[in-house]
């Protein structure tokens, strides 16, 4: 599994360094890390996507994060109901002749063209990692010039929304 952790930390200088130093010291690998401000100016949220690891290793990661004095809360979102999004900017070759194809390609992804040049367009897409991977591989044959991804950011779903979802799902089950 590739765990997703949401970590609330004090918004103070050096906190990011503490976290990355911890990961280096313990040999934990991360796939992506985003840091952003939250509704409270004293608190930042880090969203960590870890590399493949087993449960025991994940438990150790979470405990080590907890040990940091500046870490306020660690939530494992891997299996929890969550909304998670990543944003990618993809600069892809696009001679005028092909531009229509590209537009129709990206349309189902609800991606948009945010910059247009003579030979390229820049596509912006948001979604989960899978969706972004899918669009990237569709665009790859046209020649991707440059690619920038933000890494995942995530929030757990509100409890009431989760139970509502569950109720909806359950009501769709046909009793036999």
């Amino acid at each position: 599994m590739t765990p997703v952790l949401s970590v609330l930390v004090h918004n103070k200088p050096g906190v990011l360094n503490r976290i990355t130093a911890l990961f280096m010291r313990k040999g934990f690998n991360i796939q992506s890390l985003t840091v952003c401000i939250t509704e409270s100016p004293d608190v930042s949220r880090m969203t960590l996507v870890m590399s493949e690891m087993d449960e025991a290793a994940l438990e150790q990661v979470m405990k080590q994060l907890h040990k940091q004095i500046d870490v306020l809360k660690v939530t494992d979102l891997t299996e929890a109901p969550m909304v998670s999004r990543e944003l990618a900017l993809i600069q892809v070759n696009s001679p005028i002749a092909q531009r229509a194809t590209i537009t129709s390609l990206i349309d189902p992804f609800r991606a948009s063209i945010v910059d247009v040049g003579r030979d390229t367009v820049t596509v912006q897409v948001t979604g989960d990692a899978e969706k972004i991977e899918a669009l990237i591989s569709l665009l790859r044959p046209y020649g991707i010039r440059e690619l920038a991804r933000t890494g995942l950011t995530a929030l757990p779903r509100e409890a009431s929304a989760v139970s509502e979802l569950r109720r909806l799902n359950e009501s769709q089950v046909l009793p036999i």
């Binding site: 050096g14 360094n17 004095i69």
Partner: peptide, 14 residues
Amino acid sequence: IIGISTPITKHNYQ
């Protein structure tokens, strides 16, 4: 010394 000591202290302050 903050950078150097971060992995070998329980906590540090500047």
